[in-house]
Write a protein that binds this DNA or RNA. Structure first.
Lengths: 337, 337
DNA sequence: ATATTTTTTGCAACCGATTGCAATCGCTTC
DNA sequence: GAAGCGATTGCAATCGGTTGCAAAAAATAT
């Protein structure tokens, strides 16, 4: 059906090795040989089978793109960036959806069957066990949006969630709120824990500010909405730092339903700065996670690992910045004491 | 590094063929042989290399998942469904981002290098040339969310956009609007043309209703917003059928900015019913595109093609249903004449 | 002109699996 | 106990490439 190396060799009247070399740069081929081979190849519409060559070279140029975040719109942006960046490097993303997978061993087996050259785990909620399992099986791994620690077991690139919590607290403090709260995602997620930690840490410097906390059952709109509905029944705070943007928007919807206004009655600050947060009818004040930089850096690390597999695990941390929009009162308004 | 078939064969003291057969079901192996091989295999942590076997079997179990819709949130839902459905069939999605690719030949070459077993094009805006190019190169193709015609050149599964336009018109008519409008995506997209066609077709039966139309420069929030801002300066209609949900939300934001209220002053109906449309602070009335059914059906077709490559191209059309939410006035309210 | 060095090319083995064919095995039957 | 038979197993070729090595060709030196 489709032309193979052998067909090209025959048509050009040269050996198969010659053809192979004509297609690998850096190989020892004369200019006229290359020309000749290329002619035959284009006549036959030949292009070498990466998978066959992977057998001898050991490289498939396949990168496992592993995630379980198929419900958070920001991950569409992440996938867009990853696929394009990989394509630019001549690599191909093999997409793996781990939404209802709990056993790392399965994923490892699967990715090994396809002998991927590397794996990038793109998730803020996937347990570190997955990353480790990949690494243990000898595949280069980078965990994007993972938990950064001082002694990473695999490459990690992301933000400092503790610091993000701190920034959120500072932001709320600077705006004079006297009763603030943390509304996190599921308590088990390490990102949730870290953000809370930073938040509380900073607030402990301001003992006069009242602080409370609660946790939504998922990082989703409905969960955020339900949680805020609950809170509104009880004694609600003046401002909330929500686990992420989706959660924030859910909370906003609950607030609006109760005819309360934002930011006058209640302030909200999210985290991520997904595209939707900037939509004018959402207009969410949020802490921006620099996803472009995180993706670029992750790709950089994975390609570095391909060149130098023994490279030691490294953590790359990016700073977050607050993006002011309309869900927090302005900084010059101070609360009446 | 990782165990191969040969290692297992040596360890079990059998031939390589025996090992191979032990791992392919339907092969001629005795029970005790299989047991013996499996023991050795599990001791070595062996699992067969799909890529190597693809050389002889001609199947990689790789499916190219090709799209250029990496900015429409509904496609995250689509990717989620596709990846899971493919995984359930033991197939692997090789993700291809065609956002800034214009030449089908490049994509074809790329996918052939990886000898994918099939390609699913998931896009409502990608020119049909891509689908055809894949088919011409001998790869099974199904175009999901593509334009359905009576004489499809490749398998297509999607909705009848003309009918969707018609439904939109009927919906607006039933609610007594006297001046309705179509606000499409880019005029070149066939989906836009078809939706407009159906819309006008239906309205031509009601000559007393005034109808106008315009086109946003992209299927995006900003484009929808900008277009509606323009429209509001001029003579705006009572209700708009927007090209899709994202466009609709952009339009909504412009309307809200002008202190006009929805659905009292202006009605909006979208198309897609992406998750966000149901968020309570958006609450968009829209025409639901049955993405789950489209995905399932696409996968069905692609696997059918794997079994029977000569199968003739087929079009599968799903009906759309309107999802009532809050951006259109209720059906019993008739306009004052 | 020949001798020497450097490039280019082809041969053949190999990557990790599958598979047609023939040899072998275990049983049944006479 | 020998013949006959179907079910297993191993041999060896093959899939589409790559690559070490040695032979051939070209370039350079003498």
């Amino acid at each position: 059906m489709v032309a193979t190396l052998k067909d090209v060799a025959e048509r050009a009247g040269v050996s198969r090795s010659a053809v192979s070399r004509a297609f690998t740069d850096g190989a020892s081929v004369s200019a006229k040989m290359r020309k000749r081979v290329e002619k035959a190849a284009s006549e036959l519409g030949f292009s070498p089978n990466v998978l066959a060559s992977s057998l001898t070279t050991g490289r498939t140029k396949l990168i496992g793109l592993v995630s379980n975040n198929f419900h958070n719109p920001i991950f569409l942006e992440v996938f867009d960036l990853f696929t394009r960046a990989l394509q630019d490097q001549g690599l191909r993303p093999l997409l793996v959806n781990l939404t209802d997978e709990t056993d790392p061993a399965n994923s490892v087996r699967m990715l090994r069957q396809y002998s991927v050259d590397g794996v990038v785990v793109a998730s803020s909620t996937l347990p570190p066990a997955f990353g480790k399992a990949f690494r243990d099986s000898g595949v280069p791994v980078v965990h994007a949006f993972g938990r950064v620690t001082s002694a990473p077991e695999v490459h990690v690139v992301g933000i400092d969630n503790i610091d993000a919590g701190r920034i959120a607290a500072q932001t709320l403090i600077a705006r004079g709120y006297r009763h603030v709260a943390f509304m996190g995602g599921p308590e088990v997620a390490t990102s949730t824990q870290d953000r809370l930690k930073g938040f509380l840490q900073e607030l402990s410097l301001h003992p006069q500010i009242r602080v409370s906390m609660s946790f939504a059952r998922a990082y989703s709109f409905e969960a955020g909405r339900a949680e805020m509905q609950d809170l509104l029944w009880r004694d609600h705070a003046e401002a909330y730092f929500c686990g992420d943007d989706v959660l924030s928007i859910g909370a906003l919807s609950a607030i609006q339903d109760r005819q309360l206004s934002v930011p006058e009655d209640i302030g909200i600050i999210g985290l991520n700065d997904m595209e939707i947060a900037g939509w004018h009818n959402i207009n969410l004040t949020t802490i921006r996670q620099p996803i472009k930089e995180i993706v670029t850096s992750s790709i950089e690390l994975i390609t570095a690992m391909l060149r130098e597999p023994a490279r030691l695990p490294e953590a790359r941390i990016f700073a977050c910045q607050i993006v002011e929009r309309g869900t927090l009162r302005p900084i010059n308004t101070t609360a009446v004491t």
